[in-house]
């Protein structure tokens, strides 16, 4: 084996795989074709437009820089790859009051607007694909969802329903401020030294905004909904939502 053959072999074996799994998919995935609803399958026409609200970009940065992805995932796998769809509140809600069963697997549009899809490394905590939905509909049922998340970030184990949570406290995202006039509206109901209140920092506000925006259970066109066979029939009447 001459050096020339050796170098060619190295370049060819690596380069082929590199093109096939890194370069070509990267450029092909750069622009994804929009998917349309069809009258026959979905009961309505038009392009599927996923909407996210809130300060997603800033919040995702706080999420990233504090390493939430070390314990939380954002991926609902299809049933051949995992059982997330089976849980009652991970992939959407099993019994949404208005829309019925909203559970569906993650799709390519769910991560729009983010720089890096935080698929996550480990599940020491629950999946967060639909944490916004879950907090509003279950954890803070009827109450203030934003406050519930703030309190959770401030001290996850203070909630009597979650004594075993291993989520770290993010007290460093909050500030102790002296009260000079009115008590600020966003002050947390927690203990603090006399004459001060605890209020969320801009980072905490952005993070909570981002987490509340995680509601990846909107109705998708039937052509890209690979959920269990019973689903389309149930989802159909619920599809058009303002």
């Amino acid at each position: 084996m001459s050096f020339r053959q050796f170098a060619f072999g190295l370049t060819a074996t690596f380069g082929f795989a590199w093109l096939a799994v890194v370069i070509v998919p990267f450029f092909m995935m750069r622009s994804v074709e929009p998917v349309a609803f069809t009258e026959a399958a979905d009961g309505k026409e038009g392009i599927y437009h996923p909407k996210t609200t809130g300060r997603v970009t800033n919040g995702a940065e706080v999420y990233a820089s504090n390493g939430c992805y070390n314990c939380h995932t954002q991926l609902i796998r299809p049933t051949y790859a995992g059982n997330e769809l089976g849980r009652p509140d991970w992939a959407g809600l099993k019994m949404d009051e208005e829309r019925g069963d909203t559970r569906r697997e993650s799709n390519v549009f769910d991560y729009q607007g983010e720089k890096f899809a935080q698929i996550g490394l480990n599940r020491l905590g629950p999946d967060l694909s639909n944490v916004g939905r879950r907090v509003e509909a279950e954890y803070a049922k009827g109450g203030d969802a934003k406050l519930w998340l703030m309190m959770h970030l401030y001290d996850p184990r203070a909630n009597p329903q979650r004594p075993t949570s291993t989520c770290p406290s993010h007290r460093f995202l909050f500030e102790e401020k002296e009260v000079l006039g009115q008590v600020p509206q966003d002050a947390l109901p927690v203990e603090s030294p006399e004459g001060t209140v605890v209020i969320p920092s801009p980072d905490a506000n952005e993070l909570v905004d981002y987490l509340l925006s995680l509601k990846r259970d909107d109705a998708v066109p039937a052509s890209m909904n690979y959920g269990p066979a019973t689903k389309p029939a149930e989802a159909k009447p619920a599809a058009p939502q303002g």
Partner: peptide, 30 residues
């Protein structure tokens, strides 16, 4: 030979070019 190739292409694809956030995650796993 492989180290700079892998290191440079992954960092360029993830930090340099803007692309699909999912492909960035996939390239990071690779």
């Amino acid at each position: 030979i492989w180290f700079p190739w892998v290191f440079a292409s992954a960092h360029l694809m993830v930090h340099g070019f803007s692309g699909s956030p999912l492909m960035a995650a996939a390239i990071n796993a690779w």
